[in-house]
Design a protein around this nucleic acid. Structure first.
Lengths: 245, 245
DNA sequence: TACCAATTATTGGTTAACCAAATATAGAGA
DNA sequence: TCTCTATATTTGGTTAACCAATAATTGGTA
């Protein structure tokens, strides 16, 4: 009896929303709707598709999650660029959701940046090295004159992300880092001399990337991010103790 | 004048929807709402939050999109355990026009999943092992009876992501994997016997996670994803040759 | 003819009412 | 006391009407 029931396939009832999404996606990917174009009004679409407006709205909402569409209130719904940037919306959402889960954000950043620096060491171009060096020196100047160097620090890390030549990883880091650094500074996790210590660490990272020494690059970043990594690790351990009870 | 305009931050108007999402997410991550629990009815939530029901619906839709909730019509909205959206593979459909970005996505998935499995091996609970084993066996049954096993494959990988206990990494994988796997299968990048090969690979991954052998787990996933990794790697190499000219 | 202000029409946003399916309840019968 | 059935209630789904912001139109003025 069981073997028979196993063979029954679940009936795929394609909901009206999925049908609308499919058609809109088709219109966009086929080029009939270009980025910047305005979609017909929701009421018109509903009539054309022969469904209620709420279905159309739901479909549009979902496509907005992906960043495929952008809605301007009282004006219309527009096709936005269909590049890798569609992921940006999703990444932003994920980070927004997990704003409260600081440990998870720290940890994700740690591992992402380790991945990134390995790729950067492998693929960095001469231009990347110039950019990295520039960002590094800007940072050092600010620190040495006792100025705030948050932005410069960020730019150095972003320069690493750029050098990966991986647009997805770059986007993830680009979105994640500013959010994190803001939090780190506000919560004063780092002591006052952290900035000075970071100078040498940045130099180590750059040297390893320049030499295309992947292992050294990974170790250098791991050392640089170690403080934060320990915080997140401690957080997760605490979590586990709670769960084990 | 420009420097002045630069300092203006975009005003973060937290929409009612974002507030609701934040609160619901908190309830879930804090454990006050466990997987399988039913949320209060939409009308009740709307009243509690002091907003219209449509806002609540929109928030639920988004959380459903990110795999945190599951809605059963006329029954209620539940906190989701392992689940996937079988929605159209929108991300890959959009970016497959740009080969470079597609490779970047493959590569990002590769590194993300390596990170994930390391964390999973470290932190997996007994329940995680049960979930993983169940997902693995479901997959094997489907493959051995020559059935389509895309969904089961996805669920195995998502079970790994869940075992990381890192909601940021989990969310990213939850969004990327179904989209990618569906696309890979549909485009027949892999041969017909790929499914059978994957059985042994899945077993290796599970064993390593069970033994909390982090290195073995990483290697097992690397072996499992090697085909795709080679594709992305080849893409990046080709890119470099172009750049070097 | 060119420009501007007032008006009109159209847009997405929002609400409230209604629907059918799922569930909980109550009561009859064994 | 237990089980089953009929009923009532609750649920998410759906519709239609209304709202305010925007865009288009119109008419008048310089």
């Amino acid at each position: 009896m069981k073997s028979f029931i196993e063979t029954i396939r679940s009936i795929e009832v394609e909901s009206p929303v999925d049908k609308i999404i499919g058609q809109l996606k088709q219109l966009i990917t086929s080029g009939q709707l270009q980025p910047g174009d305005r979609l017909p009004a929701e009421r018109i679409l509903a009539e054309k598709f022969g469904v209620g407006r709420s279905y159309v709205r739901e479909a549009i909402l979902k496509l907005e999650f992906y960043g495929l569409l952008r809605t301007n209130p009282q004006s219309g719904t527009y096709v936005s660029g269909l590049s890798i940037k569609v992921l940006d919306n999703i990444i932003t959402d994920i980070i927004k959701f997990n704003k409260e889960d600081f440990n998870a954000l720290l940890e994700a950043r740690y591992y992402l940046e380790l991945d990134a620096v390995k790729l950067a060491a492998e693929r960095r171009t001469a231009q990347d090295l110039v950019n990295l060096k520039e960002a590094m020196i800007d940072y050092e100047n600010k620190i040495n004159s006792n100025q705030d160097a948050i932005e410069e620090d960020m730019l150095f890390h972003i320069a690493i992300a750029r050098a990966t030549k991986n647009s997805v990883i770059e986007s993830m880091i680009l979105i994640l880092i500013p959010d994190l650094i803001k939090n780190i500074v506000e919560s004063k996790i780092c002591g006052d001399n952290r900035g000075k210590l970071a100078i040498a660490e940045h130099r180590n990272i750059l040297t390893a990337i320049e030499n295309q020494d992947i292992d050294a690059a990974e170790n250098a970043v791991a050392a640089h991010l170690n403080d934060m990594f320990q915080i997140s690790k401690a957080g997760f351990s605490a979590q586990n103790i709670i769960n084990d009870n």
